[in-house]
Amino acid sequence: MPRQDMYCVGLTGGIASGKSALADRLHARGAFLADADLVAREVVAPGQPALAEITAHFGNDVLQADGQLDRAMLRRRIFANLDQRKALEAITHPRIRRALHDACMSATAPYAVVAIPLLAEGGGRSTYPWLDRIVVVDVPVELQRMRLLARDGIDAALVDGMIAAQANRAQRLAIADDVVTNTGTLGDLDVAADRLDRLYRGLAAA
């Protein structure tokens, strides 16, 4: 039977920190995984109420010909426009949080991992009070820059802008119960995943 008291771990980190790699490793060890990025796409799919609200606010030009949300267009509309960004977040964020919570509470697993890239930016525990613990994947900014340049093939100015648009390391670490410093090898990340899996299984059982 699904647990209604599922032990939930929020997982976050800066761009190119390796948070997805850690989330996948915990999932492989038996944790239920809820991904905020995937849920964010689901809540704005055609036929969903959120998409109707978005088009009512922003206009039909944020839709593609097939009725899907034109994410690139919407990003341009909200870029550097705080009011418009907040309007979009007011439509989508409550639905994303509710969907993540419902997915976790209906899961059958020793514990749940909730991957939320913008957890610090989105209010941390104040907006996710049902998280029992938060783990932050941390790397130095210079390593983020190196990974982004190598991974995405973009210029340095864009990389710096992407990093600056997120919470800084201190803000993320301030909400952390557990920290994984991901500056080593994938083998090191496996060791960290083993340690966290044992920890969270024990806390969930208690």
Rank of each mutant, 00 (worst) to 15 (best):
188 D>R: 09
123 G>D: 02
173 L>I: 00
203 L>R: 14
93 H>I: 04
193 A>I: 06
19 K>T: 09
16 A>L: 05
137 V>N: 06
53 E>F: 01
166 Q>M: 06
155 D>G: 14
83 D>Y: 01
15 I>D: 07
13 G>K: 12
127 T>W: 10
87 A>H: 11
24 D>I: 02
36 A>S: 11
177 D>V: 07
121 E>Q: 13
29 R>D: 02
30 G>P: 00
143 L>P: 09
85 R>G: 06
109 A>K: 01
206 A>E: 15
184 G>D: 01
107 A>F: 05
50 A>R: 00
63 L>F: 08
134 I>G: 06
66 D>R: 03
101 H>D: 08
184 G>P: 03
49 P>F: 07
144 Q>I: 11
204 A>C: 10
153 G>L: 11
56 A>F: 03
110 P>S: 14
102 D>Y: 04
30 G>E: 08
88 L>A: 10
41 R>M: 06
83 D>K: 14
18 G>V: 08
85 R>E: 14
33 L>K: 05
17 S>I: 11
28 A>T: 04
134 I>D: 11
35 D>A: 09
165 A>G: 08
186 L>G: 07
37 D>Y: 12
146 M>F: 00
140 P>N: 12
133 R>T: 08
125 R>P: 02
106 S>E: 14
206 A>T: 15
22 L>V: 12
143 L>C: 09
202 G>W: 05
64 Q>G: 03
28 A>E: 13
52 A>T: 14
62 V>P: 12
49 P>G: 09
130 W>Q: 02
107 A>N: 00
101 H>K: 12
150 A>Q: 14
13 G>M: 09
159 V>F: 03
200 Y>V: 07
27 H>C: 14
106 S>V: 03
